[in-house]
Write a protein that binds this DNA or RNA. Structure first.
Lengths: 307, 307
DNA sequence: GTCAACGTTTTGTCCAGGACAAAATGAACA
DNA sequence: TGTTCATTTTGTCCTGGACAAAACGTTGAC
């Protein structure tokens, strides 16, 4: 009945469910079948998960979202697991700007961080700001959070700051009568809203008209809004912790519900490998691909461009 | 394993949990103890909740969030229950602007809606726009959603539109070196972000410096951010479906963690009745109270005003 | 070599019914 | 009127079993 039983020993099963996104039932059945996690018990006989096990659970969740199955993960030894985790991370060195900005974030010097970002935005322009600053910074912040180097509060601070900057920049460039008309949103269970704003920031300078529905729009509502709003493109954003399989299923279903003349975009690096191909469905591996996808849409719809 | 088992007969227990916010365990134990809800069973023996029962569960949840206990609710007959529900709703007539704006929303004419809102914003100024337009409109949209008159997609559209407008307006008035410094956020399990923006829109024109952490910040992070960021006030926003008791507990805990010189504000109409009084904790019944609370803070801290 | 069909294994979610501590209530008393 | 204590209410956790959907691996056909 208490909902903040966060003693130093560890977290309750409910807290772990909130933290990792793994259902209580799943946590219990893993313990039974694979012997992990193996939480302590409090005086009352209830599970108490030590921070170390929670950290590992987060890693496991991450691997599973990439399509890996628990059987393999639990069978693997320490080294293999670390290898899998490192496989997609070290592709890029942590850029120089990032380090100093993350320092500012950790010191909670939000005003200084804002100025640093603003300076970069003005220097580089919106699109390069997104690809060269925001994207690597997002990755670093995500890694730092995974390591426990920054708190949830600091991550919120970062997210709000960036959201304000991007919204303002996009708003200034808004042009209500252009083409194509793009509807942006995420599926249910996907809370990450920054991806949407970043996409908007890439597309609006190209003259596209973007309307965002924010996060977690039910499938049926996406389809009906796209049709009644006379949109040309529906763009969905997926963060790295959205289960790939679930994404493909939902995309197929949405593709079925949409008329053929509306194109569907799915943004998310981890969706692209072994993704089922569908007519009128394009996967965007990186945020920059949004621009090239827009260009290719325009060449395919040259007749309508005038309006 | 399928996550959209939404057949016409009814919803699975997992879907009901998502929809109502009542835990699976709670739903099952209510069925055992009180005989309600009494879901159908599918071919597999699993619970299947008909829409009517889900609607009633929503009502029950609403009453419980106001502090009522299940024993009373389940004992009450149809009429008494309806009386309890109607008690707080009809206080205000639906204002004239609202009707036409909701029409625009239902027709998905987002650009027209934006212009209408923008016009009112410029005519009334930010603060009056919030109190006279946004507040009643929010209520109407909420009621329309409860009645099923507007879809989730339309509600998202509305929320995004307003968010953009308010963020831009607030951004334009920003003054990084003022007093007091106010930290805005919501507790975990509270997703409603519009309340925060509305508060910001009321406070920033008065010269306060607002920093928002967005929604769902853990208690400990609120306290540590407030202290390291040298804030004077922590302001929390609660929507009508946040359990009052849980709010009071968390507020007491947070008050304990914060040093005495940081004031704590809690916004939310339903929190004010029978609320436990605490030193340095102020309840704001309406959004407009933020301004008067700010004034009273200033009179109490006249010495510091200069910086 | 690619693809389809099919049996096997894995895996997440649900179920029943018991238990218990925290919260809320009401009674007794100062 | 307010405080203390016993009683009831209520949400959450527990164990261990069950099963369908999904994923996998094999086989065979082209």
């Amino acid at each position: 009945m208490n909902n903040t039983p966060e003693f130093q020993e560890g977290l309750s099963i409910a807290a772990v469910e909130r933290d990792t996104g793994l259902l209580k039932d799943t946590l219990r059945v893993w313990e039974r079948r694979y012997g992990f996690p193996q939480p302590l018990r409090d005086a009352n006989g209830e599970r108490l998960y030590p921070p170390a096990q929670i950290a590992r659970l987060r890693q496991i969740k991450r691997l599973m979202d990439q399509g890996m199955r628990p059987g393999k993960i639990f069978a693997a030894d320490e080294a293999t697991l670390a290898a899998w985790l490192g496989k997609d991370a070290p592709s890029t060195e942590p850029p120089p700007h990032c380090r100093s900005m993350i320092d500012l974030l950790q010191q909670q010097r939000s005003e200084a961080l804002r100025q640093s970002l603003q300076q970069n935005l003005l220097k580089l322009g919106l699109q390069r700001f997104v690809t060269e600053i925001v994207v690597p910074l997002n990755i670093e912040v995500g890694l730092a959070w995974l390591r426990g180097d920054i708190t949830v509060g600091e991550e919120h601070l970062y997210s709000e700051l960036l959201q304000n900057m991007l919204r303002n920049a996009v708003h200034a460039l808004r042009n209500p009568a252009g083409r194509p008309r793009i509807l942006l949103t995420t599926l249910p269970d996907e809370l990450h809203s920054l991806g949407l704003l970043m996409a908007e920031a890439m597309l609006v300078p190209e003259g596209a008209v973007c309307t965002s529905l924010g996060t977690q729009t039910p499938l049926g509502d996406i389809a009906s809004t796209a049709m009644s709003g006379e949109f040309d493109i529906v763009a969905l954003s997926f963060s790295a912790n959205y289960p790939a399989r679930q994404a493909w299923n939902n995309l197929a279903e949405l593709r079925r519900q949409l008329p053929a003349h509306i194109t569907l975009w799915a943004g998310g690096r981890h969706l692209c490998e072994r993704a089922p191909a569908l007519d009128g469905l394009h996967y965007l591996k990186e945020i920059a691909d949004a621009v090239s996808a827009l260009e290719s849409w325009r060449t395919q719809h040259q007749t309508d461009q005038s309006s």
